[in-house]
Design a protein around this nucleic acid. Structure first.
Ligand SMILES: [Mn+2]
Ligand SMILES: [Mn+2]
Ligand SMILES: [Zn+2]
Ligand SMILES: [Zn+2]
Lengths: 136, 136
DNA sequence: TCTTGACTTGGACTCTGTCCATTGTAGGAT
DNA sequence: ATCCTACAATGGACAGAGTCCAAGTCAAGA
């Protein structure tokens, strides 16, 4: 994730302690934190960081394509730093755990032309649901 | 949709004017209304119906499997009366229009065992995104 | 070091949804 | 036809997630 900070500097971002700590929190595999979770972890390192700044920074990271928004339930959006490795999600219906998964094939080709209603289809999201080992 | 009312009566539902009008609003193809949209349309026929009743009724219809909840954006959930015909969704990224689509194949088989992390996978949702003809 | 526009802050506000005490009524019993 | 009551409807308070804004702060170039 350290090269994320490099890329952001290269894009003309003013580097602040708030942005740095948000970027640091968003590091690792299978990381899908809500904005409030990001805020809580960021606040452990930088106690006075505001919710507004966390929302602003996450929104900017999404616009830059560095982070992906994931809405697997109807609740808070989650922020996924694994944006440069296309993948799908497997969600436990009981505890909410989210894992990154890589299905075979391209789901786009499963949508025939006569089912496209003239749309220009550019993306597809797949969410698998089930029970994780701990909940089963 | 009229047999929906029959099925509900058969399940012991007390038939009220509020439930009737909510069921009537949820009729047709490619219908994906938010709770507030359902409330607005129901209120055209039954002006004093409350938001709480609409939420209660929609929740009951979902529990009974008569209606499906769809969250295509991070905003309000949408309620889909087409619950007895499994399908996926094609969403316009610009105007939010939603169409029902029927991809070929079973997306479940595209998730290999070694990508299941021991989960018991029971369901899969696919959301295609793109631009509708009007927005393109 | 100075300057300035970009960034941060906290709080008010909106939107979506839930909860609950009170009031109303569908539909079976008489 | 009327009564009874358990189930349903109501509206308002409340909660969670997110946006907006005016005022204050500061990163970084001159
Ligand atoms: Mn992910
Ligand atoms: Mn649908
Ligand atoms: Zn689980
Ligand atoms: Zn459109």
């Amino acid at each position: 994730m350290s090269d994320l900070l490099e890329r952001l500097r290269g894009r003309g971002w003013r580097m602040t302690s708030q942005r740095r700590v948000v970027a640091e929190v968003l590091d690792g595999d299978h990381v899908h934190l809500t904005a409030d979770e990001v805020h809580a972890r960021a606040a452990r390192r930088l106690p006075e960081i505001s919710r507004a700044t966390v929302y602003n920074t996450l929104g900017e990271l999404v616009s830059l394509g560095e982070v992906t928004e994931v809405s697997t339930d109807g609740r808070a959006k989650r922020y996924d730093p694994n944006a440069h490795h296309p993948h799908q999600h497997l969600v436990c219906s009981s505890c909410g755990t989210i894992r990154d998964v890589h299905p075979t094939g391209d789901p786009l080709v499963d949508l025939p032309a006569e089912e496209r209603f003239g749309f220009t289809v550019s993306d597809v999201e797949v969410t698998y649901r089930g029970l994780c080992p701990a909940c089963a």
